[in-house]
């Protein structure tokens, strides 16, 4: 049994390693194409991917493979769109990419809420309320993405059409609902806890505990 676990762990690590190489290639390509929104997006993706390793100071410690996989998938889809012009040659390619970006955002959102619910005194939430928050979080991040496109600081060309905007927002909402349904079921079965347990504990030690201690000390000082 331990052997099987060991093989799985090794394969998982190598799979994550391959996915990270894909992300780094994507970052280089993004810089080459001067697509700075993509540069920022890929950089955030790589940062999220290696965050657990930084926190634990252990390169073998990885994120749940689903998250690594989603980050790499989104990166690959966007690379295809920009490098091979799939955004213009394949119908609805852009909506598919947007849908997976939103799936990634929704997953991160749900994981964040779950970790805070488990480790922070400032939040205790029923699982269905978590599902609702996941949906509204995904939609609002989608709106922020549209604001960034609208401001267009980087000068990258985006299709400015109301129809495309509404389709993008629809993709965000559907992705949010999909992850909310899957997430609530995973929470019910206890599997979501396993996915986020180790990462949640690290966040708890590194951030939440420190903040709570600081607030406690402030209150004590005020009392004196």
């Amino acid at each position: 049994m331990n052997k099987i676990k060991d093989i799985c762990r090794k394969k998982c690590v190598s799979f994550s390693f391959i996915l990270r190489i894909v992300m780094i290639i994507s970052l280089i390509l993004a810089i080459w194409r001067k697509d700075y929104v993509w540069v920022a997006g890929t950089f955030i993706g790589i940062f999220i991917s290696i965050l657990p390793s930084i926190l634990k100071r252990d390169t073998k410690f990885t994120l749940p493979w689903v998250l690594d996989f989603l980050i790499a998938l989104v990166t690959i889809l966007h690379m295809g769109g920009r490098l091979l012009d799939f955004y213009y040659t394949i119908e609805n390619y852009q909506i598919v990419t947007r849908f997976f970006i939103s799936i990634l955002v929704a997953f991160i959102g749900l994981a964040m809420i779950y970790v805070l619910d488990e480790h922070w005194d400032g939040l205790k939430m029923d699982k269905y309320a978590m599902g609702f928050v996941t949906v509204v979080f995904t939609i609002s991040i989608g709106v922020f993405l549209e604001f960034i496109k609208f401001i267009n600081i980087t000068g990258t060309y985006y299709v400015r059409s109301n129809h495309v905007l509404m389709l993008n927002l629809s993709a965000d909402m559907v992705a949010g609902i999909v992850i909310a349904i899957i997430g609530v079921n995973l929470i019910k079965s206890g599997r979501f806890d396993k996915i986020t347990d180790e990462f949640g504990n690290q966040i708890d030690k590194m951030v939440i505990d420190k903040l709570e201690n600081r607030n406690r000390n402030k209150k004590i000082n005020k009392g004196q």
Binding site: G122, L123, K124, M125, D126, Y128, A129, S140
Partner: peptide, 17 residues
């Protein structure tokens, strides 16, 4: 409701989104 206990700033964030 027992299903929801929230810090006021988290509540404000939820209202915005």
């Amino acid at each position: 409701w027992d299903g929801l206990i929230m810090d006021k700033y988290a509540l404000a964030f939820l209202v915005v989104i």
